[in-house]
């Protein structure tokens, strides 16, 4: 920064400020850009390279280029398809729940009622809970079939206890993840609701739209775009759900809760199958990029506005 004046001083003499400015600008940008470029490209390239190689850390000597063999193997592996299916169920299920609940919650919290600031914080709080903590609290304190709080509630209702992680492991996992991510959807949709011009609602009132019609015709359309953004952001995070699975089910029972992320973790760090894990990693990246493409387009559009 110090020599900016002298630089521009020279530049004025030369007739233009632009080149010196640009040089300084690049100097300031380069650390961030350089580091991110390395972070984004080097591991990506390595994943891609490994995915075409036979490479297992347990047998490091048996290693070499195998073409698309890793992919062939992966695509013919039923575990892979189970993982894809589990990932879709988890991501889509949680998305549906969080968007619906987020919409309802944000409408409720956007009302003018006593203590709404506190109520908002209470709804948003789960988002800030460390993921392994969230998983363990639910798994033990709430879901435990013997001593858990929910077991007691079921007992009060005269219903039998449920061994959540044995009989409906995916559902249990989805409840935890939905609890963690509903605040995110609520927060974004609530922010969006606050940007709704109140005069629009009043105009609709003058036009004879009752409370329900105002929600249907004015509020929900206003939320459509933020909801789409929420869906895209959440999908990327949900695709990477890991700690919750590790601490509750470790992917089981069997492969019932093994998602793509968890499968790659097993292949890479438990089986040391670098080649196979990398091929799966490439597919995960492709999956995320499809979503990211639309998301980044939305971000770029907003930057222009």
């Amino acid at each position: 920064m110090m020599d900016a004046t002298t630089l521009s001083g020279e530049a004025i003499a030369a007739g233009s400020l632009a080149p010196a400015r640009r040089r300084l600008s690049w100097l300031m940008l380069s650390p961030a850009v350089g580091l991110l470029a390395v972070w984004a490209f080097v591991p990506l390239a390595m994943t891609l390279v490994y995915s075409f190689r036979r490479y297992n850390l347990l047998y490091p000597e048996r290693n070499g280029f195998v073409g698309i063999r890793n992919y062939e193997y992966l695509l013919s592996d039923p575990s892979f398809w189970t993982a894809i299916l589990n990932t879709l169920v988890l991501v889509l299920g949680v998305l549906a729940v969080t968007i619906v609940l987020g919409t309802v919650f944000s409408l409720l919290l956007n009302q003018n009622f006593p203590g709404r600031a506190a109520a908002r914080l209470m709804v948003i709080a789960p988002f800030f809970v460390l993921p392994p903590v969230a998983a363990l609290i639910w798994k033990n304190l709430l879901f435990d079939p013997l001593n858990g709080f929910i077991a007691w509630l079921l007992h009060l209702a005269g219903l039998p206890a449920i061994a959540w992680f044995t009989h409906v492991p995916m559902l249990a996992l989805m409840v935890i993840v939905a609890w963690e991510w509903t605040p995110f959807a609520t927060l974004i949709l609530l922010t969006a609701l606050q940007s709704l011009d109140p005069e629009q609602l009043e105009a609709a009132r003058m036009d004879g739209a009752g409370p329900t019609n105002r929600v249907i015709y004015i509020v929900l359309p206003h939320l459509a775009r933020p909801a789409a953004i929420t869906i895209m952001m959440e999908s990327i995070f949900l695709l990477s759900i890991f700690a919750e699975i590790l601490t509750t089910t470790a992917g089981g029972p069997g492969e019932a809760t093994t998602t793509l992320t968890y499968l790659i973790y097993i292949r890479a760090l438990l089986n040391f199958d670098i080649g196979g894990a990398s091929a799966a990693g490439v597919l995960a990246i492709v999956l995320a990029n499809i979503v990211a493409f639309f998301l980044m387009r939305a971000v770029a559009r907003n930057l222009e506005a």
Binding site: L36, T47, I236, L239, S240, F242, S278, A284
Partner: peptide
């Protein structure tokens, strides 16, 4: 770059 799933680059 935030959109890159961490698991995709876990191995490298």
């Amino acid at each position: 770059t935030k959109m890159l799933p961490p698991v995709g680059v876990l191995v490298p």
